[in-house]
C-alpha cells in the first residue's frame, strides 16, 4: 500500500502525569461489595529495590465469563453490564497500587489452546521510554496455569512465578491477592514484547 507510514514513537509519561484529567472509576473495575470482587494489592520496585512512586498502572481484562467488552470478541458469551475491563491506578509513596476487579475467565490462545485467567498490565513511569507490559496470573489456578501457552513458553526456572498473584491467607472480603513487579534484579518480572 502506498499510504504506509511509521508509528509515532513512544515517549516517557514523565513524573507529572497527575495533571491528566482524573480517570473516573480509577482502578475500581467493580464495586468492593460486588459478589465476585477481588482486590489486587501490588507493589513496584526498581533495580535498587526502591519503590517506584510515580508510576501509572493500567489493566485490561475479560469479565468473569472470559469475554472481552470489545467488538473483536464475537464469541457468544455473556457481557456483564457496567464491566468495561479497564482500570488505571497511580502508585503511592511506597510504590503500592490497589486494583478492585474480578478474576477473569479463561480466554482462547494460539492454536486451540486455552489461556488461564489473566489480566494484561501496562506500566508507565518516568525512566520508561515506553510502557512495560506484563500479565497478572493467579497462583490458585494451578490446573489452568499448567495449560496456559504463555506460561508454558517461559521455561527458565523461577521466571514463570514472577507472573503469579499470590492469594493472601488471611481471608476477608473482597479476597486479596499480592502481586510484586520488579523492574530488575534476581527476581525480575517477566515483561513481554507485544
Amino acid at each position: 500500500m502506498s499510504d504506509q507510514r511509521g508509528t509515532t514513537p513512544s515517549q516517557t509519561i514523565g513524573p507529572f502525569h497527575r495533571i491528566m484529567v482524573p480517570w473516573e472509576g480509577g482502578a475500581e473495575l467493580v464495586a468492593t461489595d460486588d459478589a465476585d470482587a477481588i482486590r489486587i494489592q501490588g507493589r513496584i520496585v526498581d533495580g535498587a529495590g526502591q519503590p517506584v512512586d510515580d508510576c501509572v498502572i493500567e489493566v485490561w481484562q475479560a469479565n468473569v465469563h472470559g469475554r472481552y467488552a470489545h467488538a473483536e470478541d464475537t464469541r457468544e458469551m455473556p457481557l456483564v453490564a457496567g464491566f468495561e475491563g479497564f482500570g488505571r491506578a497511580v502508585t503511592d509513596g511506597d510504590g503500592r497500587f490497589d486494583i478492585v476487579t474480578v478474576k477473569p475467565g479463561c480466554v482462547p490462545g494460539p492454536e486451540e489452546t486455552v489461556q488461564a485467567p489473566h489480566i494484561s498490565l501496562s506500566v508507565f513511569a518516568r525512566g520508561l521510554l515506553k510502557q512495560l507490559v506484563t500479565r497478572i496470573y493467579f497462583a490458585d489456578e494451578t490446573a489452568a496455569n499448567d495449560q496456559d501457552p504463555v506460561l508454558r513458553s517461559i521455561t527458565e526456572a523461577g521466571r514463570r512465578e514472577t507472573l503469579l498473584a499470590l492469594p493472601r491467607a488471611a481471608g476477608g472480603a473482597p479476597p486479596v491477592y499480592d502481586f510484586e513487579i520488579r523492574l530488575q534484579g534476581p527476581r525480575e518480572t517477566v515483561f513481554f514484547d507485544v
Binding site: A48, E188, F192
Partner: peptide
C-alpha cells in the same frame, strides 16, 4: 538505568487479549 528491565523481553503472540 534502574528502571529498564535487564532480561530480554518474552515475545507474546497477539491473542484476543
Amino acid at each position: 538505568v534502574l528502571r529498564a528491565p535487564k532480561r530480554p523481553l518474552v515475545p507474546l503472540p497477539h491473542t484476543l487479549s
